[in-house]
Design a protein around this nucleic acid. Sequence first.
DNA 1: TCGTACATTAGAAACATTCCAATTTGTTGA
DNA 2: TCAACAAATTGGAATGTTTCTAATGTACGA
Lengths: 144, 144
Amino acid sequence: MGENKCHNRSYSRVIAKLKQAGLRPTRQRIALAKLLFETEDRHVSAEDLHGEACASGIGVSLATIYNTLHQFTNSGLMREVVIEGGRSYFDTNTGNHHHFFHEDTGRLEDIPSDRINVSALPNAPEGTEVRRVDVVVRVARRSD
Amino acid sequence: MGENKCHNRSYSRVIAKLKQAGLRPTRQRIALAKLLFETEDRHVSAEDLHGEACASGIGVSLATIYNTLHQFTNSGLMREVVIEGGRSYFDTNTGNHHHFFHEDTGRLEDIPSDRINVSALPNAPEGTEVRRVDVVVRVARRSD
DNA sequence: TCGTACATTAGAAACATTCCAATTTGTTGA
DNA sequence: TCAACAAATTGGAATGTTTCTAATGTACGA
């Protein structure tokens, strides 16, 4: 199930990334990291990623998918995005950006932060500080 | 369980509101509407509202709470706000506004729309139109 | 290579939400 | 007022996602 030796540089890159995040590069984490970080930015649900992993012949349980997504999120490799009840998406783009949410299809699409402008924020309530500002632009098929 | 006659004007106000929304003023809907709309703007989860209703001696099932919250939302009396996985809040403030979300406590707090400014939105993707723009400012207890 | 701390796992549990079929209630018109 | 029908409510079962648990497996420093 995947040779131990070669499969060359993409392995070392991913392993380095995991180590840097303080995570042991296990077989499962390496495989998931390759799926997640070696393509363009993506938004995946746990179920999505599990499906992909299985389809790629990686034996990985759903519990591990959840563990891994949370670990990646906690170490800043990903970001959690919640928009609809009952399902979370995890975003491989951790930079400053926002989202279109397609109400029809449930799909998420990035909006680069320089394409949007949030200003005149009120002060954070007493004793708190701002952790993040999320903007979600909900769109749907034009009706008229 | 509650007299049919008097209990005067707050009833008629709430009943009128329901009728205007095209909803039959049933015992349960009237009671819930009173809890929801006769105080300041609020953010409630289904479980919250169920608890309150039971505490007030209103016999109402959880299924009805969900039905009612969705009906109120569909007829524009409330708005659904999803911020954390696994739980929805329903907001009695349907006006244009945004939210602080206290990550520590899970509480929501309104930000009037004139206290925040979102500009330079990119165009909605081809064939779609903007339904709503939600801004969530996530705050937490100051750490430094 | 060994020992141990950390990861993974299957399955059960927890949780919010929706569905269902039976019952109750509000409304309308005679 | 009352009968009859449509609409609303209900408890409980079903669904779907996420978390938990206890047993097993794995990475890695000594």
